[in-house]
Design a protein around this nucleic acid. Structure first.
Lengths: 205, 205
DNA sequence: ATTATCTATAGATCTATAGATAATGC
DNA sequence: ATTATCTATAGATCTATAGATAATGC
């Protein structure tokens, strides 16, 4: 029953290799070797390089989904607090996967077929989240707790504002090479929360 | 003497293919085919895929260098105006090569050996520009026309602020799908000029 | 007689599978 | 008897070159 340990290991190494070298640059032989298994094991578990890649991306999507969408499971939490949780969890996911945005943007441009897969997998999840959020926002808007808002726009704002912080980080560090990333991320997350709070606050603007 | 026409064509197609598919994903056979020559011609002119790639990047660097560093050749122009020209020309170069930053960032991460080449090629040019700019800035600072400034920092600011505008563009357009890129770029360029002007203005802050 | 071009193919590299063997779970 | 694992290798794909031929410039 140590079987899935090797399977997991392959997935782990594959993630590193794909992120580091891109889909085209990654080598299945090297992934197998670094995972400490014979090359055929990789195909035994994941059939093809393409499918292995899809598993890796599927896992990332799953992690994102779990960390973010469980917010909606929490009962008895005002929607404003839920939104804050959403921002923070999404930000934390990006902290743990700082290379992912760059990688995805690149693969989407370089391999349009992958963009299709991404849409197919990610859109339903997103639509579900939007629907849930919209319902809660509408209820809260009636009570005057938040401004009347389009949930899709709000989610887009959250994603943009967080992504932005990470895309900009390498540029900032090239200007200030001694920059403290830990402090930067911490401050940025707080600012982003504030920014989103202002956007739903019924009293401002 | 139509020879270098084909050579140029190969380079042109190679640029597209490398930018679209990355170094690892691009295929020399496909480049040759799209350029309308037999595959061996590619190796005849450029020896290896790696060297073809270096030619492509070298050409881009050359273009950047020409559009930017000729500013220093202009006589009788106050340094403040030269700085404005620098910002605008760098911005225009990026407008004509909007995919280049994403591509370079990716290749630098994915292929460290290329990062080395980039440093080797780009650093001397940069150092030269910094030295020239520093001399002019110092002279102008004595006359009170600009604040006392480190030329390297100023150049870094220009590059960052311009790059930023382009890295952010796709995010913005995902939030506002109907966004007018033309107008955005125009406005951004102006803002960046203003931002840099403020930074060298002796009277502000 | 140098330069440009092509066809054909060698040689390297990579993905994927076949087929044999060992380990595991009823 | 099903699942995991390995070795060996087929087959596909890609880069690079050899060798022949055509075009060009003295």
């Amino acid at each position: 029953m140590k079987d899935n340990k090797k399977q997991k290991k392959i997935l782990e190494v594959a993630e590193e290799e794909f992120l580091m070298k891109g889909f085209a640059g990654a080598r299945t032989v090297e992934i197998a070797q670094k995972a400490g298994v014979s090359h055929s094991m990789l195909h035994y578990y994941y059939k093809t390089k393409e499918q292995l890649f899809e598993h890796v991306m599927g896992e990332k999507l799953q992690q994102l989904k779990e960390s973010v969408s469980t917010v909606f499971m929490i009962e008895d939490m005002p929607v404003v607090e839920k939104v804050v949780e959403l921002v923070v969890r999404h930000f934390e996911f990006l902290s743990e996967n700082p290379d992912l945005p760059r990688f995805i943007i690149n693969e989407v441009i370089v391999r349009p077929e992958y963009a299709e897969m991404m849409k197919r997998e990610a859109l339903p999840i997103l639509k579900d989240a939007v629907a849930r959020l919209q319902r809660e926002l509408d209820a809260a808007a009636k009570e005057g707790e938040v401004r009347t808002m389009d949930a899709a726009t709000l989610l887009m704002d959250i994603v943009s504002v967080n992504l932005f912080s990470f895309i900009v980080a390498p540029i900032l560090s090239s200007v200030k090479p001694d920059m403290d990333f830990q402090a930067y991320y911490h401050a940025r997350c707080q600012e982003n929360v504030q920014l989103i709070l202002n956007r739903i606050n019924p009293d401002i603007k």
